[in-house]
Design a protein around this nucleic acid. Sequence first.
DNA 1: ACAAATGTAATAAAAATAATTACAGTTAAG
DNA 2: CTTAACTGTAATTATTTTTATTACATTTGT
Lengths: 136, 136
Amino acid sequence: MIKTKFSIILHIITLLALYKDEWLNSTLIAGSLNINPVLVRKELAILKSSGLIESKEGKNGGVKLLKDAKKIQLSEIFEIAKGSDHVLSSLKNVPNPNCRIGKQINKNLGIVLGEIDNAIIEKLSKQSLEEFKNQF
Amino acid sequence: MIKTKFSIILHIITLLALYKDEWLNSTLIAGSLNINPVLVRKELAILKSSGLIESKEGKNGGVKLLKDAKKIQLSEIFEIAKGSDHVLSSLKNVPNPNCRIGKQINKNLGIVLGEIDNAIIEKLSKQSLEEFKNQF
DNA sequence: ACAAATGTAATAAAAATAATTACAGTTAAG
DNA sequence: CTTAACTGTAATTATTTTTATTACATTTGT
């Protein structure tokens, strides 16, 4: 899920950064992404709980960015999309505990998967939303 | 698909490194992973075409590693799992071409996604299969 | 000759994602 | 003070992706 979520959230937040003084509604955002508005509202709920945006209910409502795009690094957006999962997760299947490798693989793999996450965060911490949005 | 593929391939290749002088068959490998042998054989086909392993058909057949584990970095395994996709690529993602952001997002996103791939590769190029396998 | 493998295609089942429907609650504006 | 346009969610359905299964041709060791 991280896969699509990062793209969706970055798209949303880029829109919000470009129209930072307007309340953008979920139907408009969904139209830009070409996905269902309910899915957008679900992602907006996550962005809201992470403090990046605020929302206004009722007529002429919508959402807007709370932070300056210069102060948001892409790593922050990535971490929201990532949640508590690893980007490359291990299998749902339980490996064979009677196997020398099977019984230890998830522990050892987990370390590598964590390093992968951190490598991404480190890289994306060097690019701000401001820089990204100015490409449009 | 990259998500689970990396775990599967790394597990397989760790097994092969630990038993580098034996022909391991797909049923045995599948037993360690606790997945279907046909799926293992499909991954083995990819590993074979990438030159990391060789296979032997017929009775007492199986697969074995061709390269020394000291000369295989985890980045090589990652790149095989990755194939031509980005780690974080949205599957459908056909944004609205009539939107200022929609029509450009894939190009700009593509650059970021490529940087993510490279950050992972760079990180994993520092760890060899030998080091990984010695943890077992 | 037979058993145990790989290799691969086709199909079925299961799981994960996304879309849709529905509706309660909120707010702006006439 | 009523209506229209929103958010916020839950529940359900549809679609897509992933994994498992079945099947079988081919290869090879004994």
